[in-house]
Simulated scan of single mutants.
Amino acid sequence: MTDPFEEHRRLLFAAAYRMLGSVADAEDIVQDAWLAWHRADRASVENPRAYLVRTVTNLSLNRLGSARVVREAYVGPWLPEPLLTAPDIADEAEQADTVSMAMLVVLETLNPTERAVFVLREVFGYSYAEIAQVVGKSEAAVGQCAHRAREHVRARRPRFTTGAAEQRQIAEKFRAACAGGDLGEVLALLAPDVVSWSDGGGGVTAARRPLHGPDHVARWFLGVLAKPEVQGVEMHPAEINGEPGLLLVYGGVNAGALTFDAVNGRITALRLVINPEKLRGIQA
């Protein structure tokens, strides 16, 4: 007989990751939930799935409170931890957008309860009654919270999406332009209002503030790649957080993840994560 925890492990990680934006924290939460499950009187648990999701949600809410304090003191832009995905593990296709870096950045602007309610409602389809039991609020309060979160996300998420095939083409063009050090080609791929965020956590070379405009973004990327200490870095196509992106590989080790948004064939946003402490999710 399959252990209910093992049966739902993937769901639990998916929920925790979307609530926290951190692979390491999500893995810790799943481990803590496993301990709680094995300490529980399982004979009295009528619905193991509901029990486990409630456990993971409560643990994630507790973790979010302390995470905000840490992120306020973070050096440079804070970005979610990237996660390598593939068609068979990126959840259902209609859920792929909910794990994208762009979406996780938006979810970071919600308060902890709104984030948990949004994930349970919009990603996993829980009813207001079920969520109310999970977060310990009335059904009416959950409905209001879900509405606020939904409107908040709708106002901030990218309004236009690019198909996966076109995004792969753009990623390949960007990779080739960077590999060739071709400023003109990089500039041609960037939209006039492009913004770039790089998360190095203060430990590796990264821009301490967002970069705006094609010229600043292109020159920064090419300048970093030209530094002697990063000679030999290669970019390889990969599916990152459910979307085509680029892995930065150095000495055979995945050393960073680059994801982007694009509109009408041009890049509008770049998100580069190179903080070594945030790369667990791209080492698999």
Score class of each variant (00 low, 15 high):
Thr55Tyr: 01
Thr259Phe: 03
Thr98Gly: 06
Pro82Leu: 13
Gly21Trp: 05
His152Leu: 08
Ile89Arg: 12
Asp97Ile: 13
Arg168Leu: 08
Val142Glu: 08
Val204Lys: 03
Trp197Lys: 04
Ile267Glu: 00
Ser60His: 07
Met103Leu: 06
Gly203Tyr: 12
Glu94Trp: 15
Leu59Pro: 05
Glu122Ser: 10
Val153Glu: 12
Arg42Phe: 06
Lys227Ala: 10
Ala171Thr: 07
Thr98Met: 08
Glu185Phe: 00
Ala164Thr: 10
Arg49Ile: 00
His212Pro: 01
His152Phe: 15
Glu234Lys: 06
Gly125Arg: 04
Pro112Gly: 05
Ser127Pro: 02
Leu270Lys: 07
Ile170Cys: 05
Arg219Val: 01
Phe13Ala: 04
Lys137Gly: 00
Leu35His: 12
Ala146Leu: 00
Ile29Thr: 14
Val204Phe: 03
Arg10Leu: 13
Leu247Arg: 04
Cys145Val: 07
Ser198Asn: 09
Leu110Ser: 11
Val217Asn: 00
Ala206Val: 06
Ile267Leu: 07
Thr109Met: 05
Gln169Tyr: 01
Ala90Trp: 02
Gly200Asp: 00
Arg121Asp: 11
Arg159Met: 12
Glu166Gln: 14
Ala179Glu: 12
Tyr126Thr: 06
Leu83Glu: 06
Leu272Lys: 00
Val186Leu: 01
Gly281Trp: 01
Asn111His: 10
Met101Asp: 14
Ala67Gln: 15
Ala102Pro: 00
Pro276Asp: 03
Gly181Arg: 09
Ile29Pro: 08
Arg154Lys: 15
Gly265Ser: 09
Gly65Gln: 13
Glu243Val: 10
Val195Thr: 13
Val75Glu: 13
Ile274Pro: 04
Val273Ser: 02
Thr85Gly: 05
Ala191Gly: 09
Asp3Met: 04
Glu151Asn: 14
Thr268Asp: 05
Trp78Tyr: 13
Thr55Ser: 07
Phe160Cys: 05
His147Leu: 08
Val273Ala: 08
Arg154Trp: 13
Leu107Val: 02
Leu110Ile: 04
Leu83Lys: 07
Gln231Arg: 14
Ile89Val: 12
Gln167Ala: 09
Trp220Val: 03
Val204Thr: 05
Val142Asn: 11
Val153Ile: 07
Ala96Asn: 11
Val204Asn: 01
Asp3Asn: 03
Asp25Gly: 11
Gly181Leu: 05
Lys278Ala: 05
Val224Glu: 05
Arg175Cys: 03
Gly65Ile: 09
Ala14Glu: 10
Ala96Tyr: 10
Glu92Asn: 09
Glu130Pro: 03
Phe118Ser: 09
Glu151Trp: 03
Gly163Asp: 15
Ala43Asp: 11
Val45His: 11
Arg156Ala: 11
Val249Phe: 02
Asp215Cys: 04
Ile240Arg: 00
Val53Thr: 06
Leu61Asp: 04
Asn62Tyr: 14
Val142Pro: 02
Ala218Tyr: 03
Asn264Lys: 15
Asp32Arg: 15
Trp34Leu: 13
Val217Ala: 01
Val230Phe: 11
Glu92Leu: 15
Trp37Ser: 08
Arg156Gly: 04
Ser138Arg: 03
Ala257Val: 02
Gly184Cys: 08
Pro237Gly: 06
Ala165Leu: 11
Glu166Ala: 14
Gly76Ser: 02
Pro244Ile: 01
Leu12Asn: 09
His147Val: 08
Pro77Ala: 09
Leu12Lys: 04
Ala188Thr: 04
Leu52Trp: 01
